[in-house]
Structures are given as C-alpha cells and as structure tokens.
Design a binder for these strands. Structure first.
Lengths: 356, 356
DNA sequence: TTGTAAGCGTTATCAC
DNA sequence: GTGATAACGCTTACAA
C-alpha cells in the first residue's frame, strides 16, 4: 500500500477554515437568520430583493444548511436504512443485491434522501439490539428489510417502536408489516415446473436455499406443489443454503445416484452456475444430458455459455418499490409507483427436451 | 403489489410515544443530564452507585443517545460516504462492488460507523456540486472514492475543502490525495501476457475499459508493454467501456477477421464471460480454439464452465483498506492494517496452449 | 463526585 | 416582510 496524506495532517495545509453557518450568511446579507432559513425552505414570505441578496451571500460563502443541525431540529435525518444479512463473520452480498441497491438509490436520490447500509448477523439477540438502536438513535427515518424469517422478531419490535419500515417480500406468518411483493410471487417457479414437464423431464432434482427463510420455503413449496399437480415428485429436495459449493456437491451426489435426474432446479443463479460446472465435470453436457434452471435472472446468466434458463425477478424494480413505499410512509411523494411485476421464466440455453 | 400499513397511519396504533431524552433518564435516576452523558461516554468520574442507577434508568426507558444530537454537538456524524458511479440514467454497480462494500462494512461496523451510499453521474458540474454538498452538509465525516479519472476535479476540490477522503486506486496525475493501492498494481496483468506467450499465443486481442479512467488505461498499457517487451503487438486493442455486449460484438468482429486472434484478453470478468459466449456462438471452443482471460476474480468465474482464467484482485481487502485508511484520517484506531496484496493471475480452465 | 450552563446550527412561532 | 427567540438533544468546560 502506498499512501500520502495532505488532508490528514493540518500542518502545511491551511487549517480547514470553519464552515460558514446560517448566521454568517445572515450577517453578510444584512438580515436575520430566520430570513435565510425561510428563503432556503421556501416557507414564509421574503421579498424578491432580499431573497436574491441572501442567495448571493450563501453562494459567496459556499453555504449549505448543515444536515445534522437540520436533522436535529426537524427530527428527520432524511436517511433510509438498509440492513444487509451478514451470515457469519463476513458480510455476504448476493449477486442480485447490486441492482437492488441501484433501484433504491434511483428513488432516494431525487428526493435527496441518503441510504445508510448496515450489516447485521442473524443472531436474534444481536438483531433486536441492532434494530432497536437503529430506530432509537434516529440515524434513519425509516428502513427497508429483506429476507423475512419464520417468527421474525423484527416485525413486532418495529411495530412496538412505531418505526416506519417496509419488508421486501412476504412476512412468514400473519405479522403486521408493510411489505411490497408482486401479485403472484411464485408464478415463475410454477412455470419452471411446467416447462420441464413439457420437455419430457420426469426425474427432477431441486436444490433449495435456507431453512426458515420465507422466500426459500415458498419457492420450494411452489415448485414441489406444481410437480405434484402433475403427479410427479422430485427425486431430491435438498436445502443447500444458497451456497454454490454445497450446491455443486449435492449435484454430484444426485447425478451419481442409480437413477440420476435429467433436470436440476436451483433456488439461485449462482447455485445453478455451480451446478452446471459439477455436471460438466462428470462428463455430462448441459443441456443435452441434463437441463438446468436457476433463479434470479442475474446478468451473467445471459452472457455465459450455455446461457442460463432462469426465473427473472427484477431486483432493481424491487429496490425502487421498497424505496417508494418507505418514502410514502414518511409522508413524501416520490415519483414512480411501487408496482411489482411477477417474476417470469426466461428460457435460454440450459434447458432442452430430455434425450434418452 | 400488496401492501398493508399498520405503521403508516397513527390511527389505531397508539401514537408512537415521544422518545425518551437524556433529561428523562436523568430525572428518573435523580441526577443531572451531565452525569448521564458522562456515564455513557466513560468520561468524567461517576460513582459506581450512580452509574448503575443511571444505566438502569436508561434501560427502563430504552434510551440511547440521539445520533443526530450527538452529531451536531460533536460535529462528527460517525458516518463514511461512498460515492458510486452512475454512468447514465441508472446506477451501475459492478460485479466486484458487492464484496468491496462488504469489506468496508467489516471495518466500519466494529467502530460503529455508518456507511452512506451516494450515486453520482460523471458530469463534472454535477460531480463538483455533489461532492461540495456532501462535504458541506457534513452528513459524513470522510469519504471513499473510486475510479480516478484524468484531471479528476474531485481531488483539488476535496483538498480545498480540507475534507478527509481516500481514493481506492492511483490518482491519474500528480494530484495530492490519500490513496490505497497494492505495491505493484499491474503485476497480474504482466503475468497474463507471459502466460499467454508461454502457451504459444502470438495473435492476441485486447478489449479494454473506458477512456480516461486511470485503472483502465494503466491496465491496458501494462499489458501492451508486456507484450512489446517480447516483440509482440496485440492484433487489436479496443476500448469497449466495460460493456459486456460491446465486448461480445467486438469479439465477433475480431474472430471473423482474416487472421483471427487465438487469445482474447478482457479488462473485466463480465466482458470475458460475454466474450466466451460470442466465441462459442461462432462455433469455437474455449479454450481449445481460443483462450480467454478476464480481470477481477469474481466468484462466478470459478463456478462457470469453463472456469475463467483471470486476474484476481481482492475487492473485499480493498474495501477494508479504504475503510481503515479513512478511519485513521479521522483519528480512529481501527483494528486491521491497510496493506493491499498484488492482484494475481489465477489460471483456470479458459486458457490453454495454442492448437494449430 | 456531581451539577450548572453555554453552546452545536438549524427551524418554527410569534411579534412587529 | 422581517426579526427575536425559544427550542431540538446532546456534550463539555467550569464550578461546586
């Protein structure tokens, strides 16, 4: 690492002159602090003349209202919190998270809201403490949650605190929490089943996410039910924690069994990609010998070879909807609408009719 | 979208009772506000007895110091800003960004610093306004920058403002800015050239990033120079803006030329993955007919088939180093060290000796 | 060991 | 139209 620090030591550099305050601007414009505030908040009535004088003074002094002072006075931080899952000792951010963040940002930015990231592990005690502090310190005005779990302790807590929050997804039980979700969240998964059956597949293996997580369970149930309606049962139905390595291992085990599956369905694109590799290393060709389907619709799925058949869920749209919804909770009037489209099956190169 | 809003309307729900303040805690414990403050900041000396009374009172009232009030009083927001690049109308977050964020978080969390995300486009005027506001409103105590560009206007501005900031990477010219970078940033790229030459490749195409971006230019120059030292010139050397689609198109054009390259080198993994697809669609097999090398070392490269030979740069480590450095600038004493290892060539399945 | 009081930089409610 | 002035919730000399 190389490093040089002009900004660090205030030795040679001129001591960063004290920031101008509203009082300085008022003085320079020859008005009261109140007048300045009124101009910048378009509240109260100030003559065109003084308004211009004040604006000029502010420009001269490079003044912008202090966010912290405003936050204190208005008890609004103008910031939304997002809690990311931190499974163990490292923060883990899935492939789809990037566009989710982008979506949130795109709605927050126009209203000049900030986005504060936090990473918290799944230890219930830590969770509660963290969320409580999050709400109590009032660093954020509202928050966006993801990944509802069974008996999620966060929902009652937030309700008790009366803290504005929106869940992306569906709460597990009948917990009361504002949430955004598409009309039929599992539509794409059902199509997955139909697609495979239509191609003649009968021996199908499913590799799921994590136990106790709503999305993981719902997705799996929807798939298994869809097969059941056609009298089929998956040859395996395993939870591999959204972990690509575990998915690959489980895939190898299945493909080596005496009556191996002809189709492999995964609860995430990353796992599906790893599954393709596992199959390939066993000398099988995708999709000729085995078909593979992922979930998520990440961009790389489109670029890789074979391109990945998957269920695309618009992460960016989900981010936007979540942001819009919290903002509304806070009394803001964001532009867009919070409508979510159903995830949809995207048939690409990793699936084909069963051969043999 | 379905939505229900218990927290939204304060109709049925008991109006969220006013939060306890330090005064309430003081009253309940029968002490002054100063005493409470001292206990919670471990400053001044308070008897064990009163300390316990105060802590108990705080617990009873679920009180935590208000972050905004503290921020105002101390003129420290305890928050670091990170500016993400927003190329056009949408926020774009690269594949490696996720682990970069994770790295930053892992250093910030223990010191209870928050991370505020901002997305700004590359329009110089917007940039300057945004950074100025960022610094002036004091929402953040310091910031982390990425992607230095030629004549980067941000550096002089931040210097002028005396604002603590750290660049991840190398400044383009001789701008003064604290930065973190590995000792030999282009070591892996040079190895790339050697690797290909060693495999017998002589017709090599290079697909670069964006013009005027330091990393993009440095990477390209290092590669071309490394080839030149062995008397080789790339058959093509194009800038495709880190855009996988453009990379694929450029790849097709090259492979269809009269003397097509036997090796394709890309400035990002995403582009390399798209390049493999392009080659495959032309009926070529990777690595048998063409070798492919990416840059970045994203996880999917390891899981895909063929697995991707690439230059791995530890994004998480870069995030950690950036966070540590900016925290130090702020007078904090973060745990880890800000050392960066050189990126290294990871030879996997997408390269092989030239056949023909 | 504890308390008093003066801010930090705004905004909101009144008067004028 | 404009200006005093009192908060917002906390920290920190300085006194006691």
């Amino acid at each position: 690492m190389s490093e040089n620090s002009p900004a660090g030591a205030p030795d040679s550099a001129p001591a960063p002159r004290a920031r101008a305050t509203i009082a300085d601007v008022a003085a320079r414009a020859g008005v009261s602090r109140a007048a300045v505030s009124k101009v910048f908040n378009r509240t109260g009535s100030i003559s065109v003349d003084t308004t211009e004088r004040i604006r000029q003074a502010a420009r001269d002094l490079n003044w912008t209202p202090s966010a912290t002072a405003t936050a204190l006075r208005r008890s609004r931080s103008h910031t939304i919190g997002l809690v990311l899952d931190k499974p163990s000792d490292r923060v883990d951010i899935g492939l789809g998270t990037a566009s989710f963040l982008a979506g949130i940002q795109s709605e927050l930015a126009p209203l000049d809201y900030g986005l504060l990231l936090h990473a918290i592990d799944r230890e219930p005690a830590h969770q509660l403490a963290a969320y409580r502090t999050f709400a109590e310190t009032r660093r954020v005005d509202g928050m966006i949650l993801t990944d509802s779990v069974e008996n999620d302790p966060r929902f009652p807590l937030l309700a008790e605190l009366g803290f504005p929050a929106v869940l992306v997804g569906t709460p597990f039980g009948d917990e009361q929490i504002v949430h955004v979700e598409s009309p039929d969240p599992e539509a794409g998964v059902v199509d997955t089943a139909e697609h495979l059956l239509g191609l003649g597949h009968r021996r199908i293996a499913y590799f799921g996410g994590s136990p106790g997580r709503y999305q993981s369970e719902a997705r799996r149930t929807a798939f298994v039910d869809a097969l059941a309606r056609r009298g089929i049962e998956p040859v395996s139905n395993e939870l591999v924690d959204y972990n690509p390595k575990r998915a690959a291992a489980a895939t190898v085990a299945q493909l080596r069994s005496e009556s191996p599956p002809t189709a492999l369905v995964y609860a995430s694109d990353a796992m599906a990609i790893a599954g393709i590799q596992a199959a390939t290393e066993l000398g099988l060709s995708v999709p000729h010998d085995v078909s593979v389907i992922g979930y998520g619709g990440v961009d790389v799925g489109e670029w890789m070879t074979p391109s990945l058949t998957t269920v695309r869920r618009d992460s960016e749209q989900r981010g936007r909807a979540a942001a819009i919804t919290v903002l509304r909770l806070l009394g803001e009037r964001p532009e867009g609408d919070a409508t979510l489209e159903n995830p949809e099956l995207v048939v690409r190169g990793s699936t084909s009719a069963v051969h043999d």
